[in-house]
């Protein structure tokens, strides 16, 4: 008895707070959402269980088609943008710019949108897309005698994807540039002695070396994009109409604008399920188990 206590005292003291934090802030919300999804909780905040009514409502919701379509477009294109643009930035700032201080300078610039608070960043974007002739984009158009355009009305999804893509790219950039840096220099020297073209250096050395980070970034960004809505909320609030409304934002609107907490939770629960299924699938497709093994460059 005494020895067991002795053995577990330290780990318990060390891990206890974290286990509490994780269960309070990560696990409990999911459990609560799962329970709430089966209630008709509204502004009266009563736990009235109503079976599968919320899910039936979700299937018959006239907006759900367009919202799901938007979610696919949003997650798909932003993910492409995040991963490939992040990779391009990583290669540019580590391979093409060999001088570390210069590369670091450019990487820092790309990190700025991520460091700035979302509200401030979105405010700048709102000014960038402003429909009046004073907006940045429109004043550029004015140089070519083009009339001002209402960007957020005419191209809401493009604006949302661009905004999220530009922020998200810095995440990939950081991961990829450190992966590229860890490639032994000899490989590059050997390639240049053999007279390899830049393209073949990228294709045959860099890409294979960053294969695992590439998959990690894809999975990670996919999950965070699926549930993120703050930039859309601030930029277009899902509008005009439902043109830039995605599932996560729809859940927020239902819960906190219409005060249908039960229904909003049901939508969130569907999102959680989608995330779980895709994580499992990607884990399998990408062979994550193999990734956890030893490094392939040695």
């Amino acid at each position: 008895m005494g020895s067991v206590l002795k053995r577990w005292k330290l780990p318990a003291v060390m891990l206890g707070p974290f286990i509490i934090l994780i269960s309070l802030f990560y696990f409990l919300p999911v459990v609560l959402i799962a329970i709430l999804a089966f209630t008709s909780m509204d502004s009266a905040m009563r736990w009235d269980f109503n079976g599968l009514a919320n899910f039936q409502k979700l299937v018959t919701d006239p907006n759900i088609g367009v919202v799901v379509k938007n979610t696919i477009i949003y997650v798909g294109f932003t993910l492409l943008f995040n991963v490939f643009f992040g990779l391009a930035l990583g290669i540019l700032t580590t391979y093409f710019i060999q001088k570390e201080s210069v590369g670091l300078f450019f990487r820092t610039i790309w990190m700025l949108p991520r460091i700035s608070p979302p509200v401030v960043y979105t405010l700048l974007l709102l000014w960038f897309f402003d429909p009046s002739e004073y907006g940045v984009l429109n004043s550029l158009r004015a140089l070519f005698n083009m009339p001002p355009d209402k960007w957020l009305t005419t191209h809401p999804m493009t604006a949302v994807i661009l905004a999220n893509g530009l922020i998200g790219a810095s995440f990939g950039m950081i991961i990829f540039s450190s992966a590229i840096k860890s490639i032994p220099k000899d490989l590059f020297y050997a390639a240049s002695v053999d007279g390899a073209s830049q393209w073949s250096v990228i294709k045959d050395i860099i890409i294979p070396a960053v294969r695992w980070p590439l998959m990690f970034v894809t999975l990670w960004q996919f999950l965070s994009l699926l549930t993120s809505y703050e930039y859309i909320l601030l930029l277009t609030n899902g509008g005009p109409l439902f043109e830039s409304e995605v599932l996560a934002l729809y859940s927020y609107h239902k819960a906190f604008q219409n005060f249908e907490f039960g229904y909003g939770s049901a939508i969130s629960l569907v999102l959680v399920l989608i995330a779980l299924i895709f994580s499992a699938l990607m884990w399998k497709w990408f062979g994550m188990k193999k990734m956890m093994g030893s490094s392939r460059i040695e």
């Binding site: 008895m1 067991v4 206590l5 577990w8 005292k9 780990p11 318990a12 003291v13 206890g16 707070p17 286990i19 509490i20």
Partner: peptide, 19 residues
């Protein structure tokens, strides 16, 4: 099983202390 109980007890006591 007993180990588990100990862990749970420690975790709970940390929590109660905090509260």
């Amino acid at each position: 099983m007993r180990k588990m109980k100990k862990v749970t007890a420690s975790v709970l006591s940390t929590f109660v202390l905090g509260m």
